[in-house]
Amino acid sequence: MKQWKSIAVSRDTQLEAAISVLETGGQRIVLVVDDDERLQGTLTDGDVRRALLRHKSLTTPVEQVMCASPQVAQLDWSRERILSLMESSRLLHLPVLDSSGRVVGLETLHELLDKKRIDNPVFLMAGGFGKRLYPLTQDCPKPMLKVGDKPILELILQSLADAGFHHFYISTHYLPEMIRDHFGDGSKWKVSIQYVHEDAPLGTGGALGLLPPGEIQLPMILMNGDLLTRIDYRSLLEFHQRHQGAATLCVREYESQIPYGVIQSEGHRITHIVEKPIQRFFISAGIYVLSPDLIGRVAPGQHIDMPTLLEQEILAGREVNMFPVHEYWLDIGRMDDFHRAQDEVRS
């Protein structure tokens, strides 16, 4: 069983602090306990994302968003009984309690089954010019700019390989030889890499039409080649498979404050004045899960951007879902983002 005290919080812990424990604990779950170590509830990625979708504040006490009645195992249960409950209830974690309701450990389905490889393919988009980072990109593709001592694209690939992915495609256009020379066939990272070259830019979704016909049989992760993130890819895939949509779009919450008092009115009569209101939106995080059927609908050579492609799916009546990202995420699109990445990789 896993040690659990490093992933325990109290009921009045703020959501922001609980998310930090969730990310650093590495178990994809937080246990909410009282002063006697009795289990009060659990907090998972799903609970956090549902709270974010409801625009819950990060100062919200964790007891308001936790699962207050989680399933548990008893200390004397056998491995087979625990595994049977986890599989029948589709659980990834199971707190283990003693006869007094105190937490004594944590079982995880991943450890019980020891399934480490993920066969879903990953498509990394690395063909852009990176014009906003000029002159750094004058002689170097943006994904090959170094953050610390490694190219951005290598940091992305390594994080995915560490998560268990082994089947990669990389799209290229601008200075493709630099990418091919660095990554080769992927054997250095114990993965396989195939390259998809765009002779002319095809937009953020057009390279999908250049994938080998019929080769994509499982939902595929598509990711921009200029992102640094600690997203839980397994949770993302599980979410997509559970909801069975044509696509899942990862989103981030973005806040924008209007620097003036906003007037609400009826005709010439003012009904309300809101001083410097904050508006919240969900924005694309540049990470997607795409069904094989969707990929097959992109014609070879078709120029299309991802927003347009997803809009077409929605208009056709196919389901496109969103997956809120609360983990670390940085889009290296501008020079200040690049400098920020250098600072954060050293911290």
Rank of each mutant, 00 (worst) to 15 (best):
M1N: 05
W4E: 02
W4Q: 00
I7T: 12
I7K: 12
Q14N: 14
A17H: 14
R28A: 13
V32P: 10
V33R: 03
D35E: 15
D35T: 07
Q40H: 06
D45C: 05
G46R: 09
D47I: 02
V48F: 10
V48T: 13
V48G: 11
R49L: 08
A51S: 12
L52I: 15
L53Q: 14
L53N: 12
K56M: 14
L58F: 14
V65W: 08
V65D: 10
V65P: 09
C67D: 15
Q71K: 04
V72F: 03
L75T: 08
S78M: 04
E80H: 04
R81A: 08
R81F: 00
S84H: 12
M86Y: 01
S89K: 15
S89H: 15
S89E: 15
P95Y: 06
V96T: 05
S99A: 10
S99W: 05
S100N: 12
V104G: 04
L106I: 08
D114P: 00
R117K: 09
I118W: 02
D119A: 12
N120A: 05
N120F: 06
P121Y: 11
V122H: 05
G127Q: 05
G128E: 08
G130Y: 05
K131C: 06
Y134W: 12
P135Y: 13
D139M: 05
D139Y: 05
P141L: 00
P141H: 06
K142D: 00
M144C: 10
L145W: 02
K146L: 07
K146S: 11
G148R: 00
D149I: 02
P151R: 03
L153V: 14
L160F: 13
A161D: 00
A163M: 00
G164N: 05
F165I: 05
F165C: 03
H166I: 06
F168A: 13
Y169C: 03
I170L: 08
L175Q: 07
L175A: 01
P176I: 13
M178A: 00
R180T: 13
H182Q: 09
F183E: 05
F183I: 10
F183R: 01
G184I: 12
G186N: 06
S187Q: 12
W189Y: 11
K190W: 00
G205L: 11
P212N: 08
P212E: 07
P213N: 03
I216G: 03
M223W: 09
M223E: 01
L228I: 10
S235K: 13
L236P: 02
L236E: 04
F239K: 10
H243T: 13
T248G: 06
T248Y: 11
V251N: 09
S256N: 07
Q257V: 15
Q257L: 09
E266M: 07
E266Q: 09
T271F: 04
H272I: 02
V274Y: 10
E275A: 13
P277L: 15
I283H: 11
S284Y: 02
I287M: 12
L290V: 10
S291D: 13
S291I: 03
L294W: 03
R297S: 14
A299M: 09
P300W: 14
Q302D: 07
H303Y: 13
D305P: 02
P307N: 11
Q312F: 07
L315T: 04
L315Q: 14
R318I: 09
M322W: 14
M322V: 15
P324T: 15
H326Q: 10
R334Q: 10
D337Q: 04
H339W: 09
R340M: 09
V345G: 00
S347G: 01
